[in-house]
């Protein structure tokens, strides 16, 4: 998921960014109200973590701007002010939740998870492809019912491939969307991680008995998942040009 952190305290902003990145989100951080609106326009975040005390344009003004133009973006408000009226005002203006400072990073992450879970309530967080099953909320992957432990990057790579069903994904696309790197970057990181994934997914299946390869190389093009296509009820999954995310049918 794409998350925008808006916090004028640089150190705190960086820690929130690190903590949410460790959760596997794509996270950007800005330090003032004007930059928040500008960045939100550019990245269309799924979630904004918004501090109220901001230079240039305060959090309430940002919230008002969001209400008009970014109805799809969920908002978690952070505040150090203890007045209940202020929190009520923010919730009435469209914020999804408020968190009073000081708070624990674990609580912030859990609240973000809850907001995103509610937000995607109408869309199943489960992606399926043959024997492969991914829960994007719990960040769990199963192959044939066996859990596969993946790193954040491996998870993001597999998520991108699964969102594409059985369609081919080029190395350039993977480099840009999963690693946020330039298409000209001279690196074999995609091939290395595809190999990691292949190994982990094959080990997880049938207790060491050789299984069907789940990721296929398309010569001169890239990679794709083999076998039957994705299914998750009546939900149509689409990978957007700006990165993978869910879309309701």
């Amino acid at each position: 998921m794409k998350v925008l952190v808006v916090e004028d305290d640089r150190a705190l902003g960086m820690f929130l960014q690190k903590g949410l990145r460790a959760e596997g989100h794509h996270v950007e951080w800005v330090g003032d109200g004007d930059a928040a609106v500008e960045k939100a326009t550019e990245m269309q975040p799924d979630l904004m973590v918004l501090d109220l005390s901001l230079p240039n344009r305060d959090g309430v003004e940002v919230l008002a701007e969001l209400q008009g133009h970014f109805a799809e973006t969920a908002v978690l408000v952070l505040t150090g002010r203890s007045q209940v009226e202020e929190r009520v005002k923010c919730l009435n203006m469209g914020a999804d939740d408020c968190l009073l400072k000081p708070f624990s990073l674990h609580e912030l992450i859990a609240r973000c998870r809850a907001i995103l879970r509610r937000k995607s309530h109408h869309v199943s967080p489960i992606l399926k492809h043959g024997m492969l099953e991914m829960n994007r909320m719990d960040r769990k992957v199963l192959r044939g019912g066996v859990e596969v432990e993946l790193t954040t990057k491996e998870f993001a790579l597999l998520e991108f491939l699964m969102l594409r069903g059985g369609d081919c994904c080029s190395r350039t696309e993977l480099l840009m969307d999963v690693w946020k790197m330039s298409p000209d970057a001279e690196t074999n990181v995609v091939d290395v991680y595809i190999n990691y994934l292949r190994k982990k997914l094959s080990h997880a299946h049938l207790d060491g008995v050789t299984s069907e390869p789940i990721i296929e190389t398309v010569r001169g093009e890239g990679y794709r998942l083999t076998g039957s296509r994705a299914s998750s009820g009546a939900i149509k999954i689409a990978a957007r040009a700006s990165g993978p995310r869910m879309a309701a049918a």
């Binding site: 150090g80 203890s82 000081p102 708070f103 990073l105």
Partner: peptide, 21 residues
């Protein structure tokens, strides 16, 4: 003054939790 205490206390908490993670 309470508000001014909240900011460094939150940063401290998050720093330590991230370090432990």
């Amino acid at each position: 003054q309470l508000h001014d205490l909240c900011q460094p206390l939150t940063t401290l908490q998050c720093r330590l939790e991230l370090g432990a993670m």
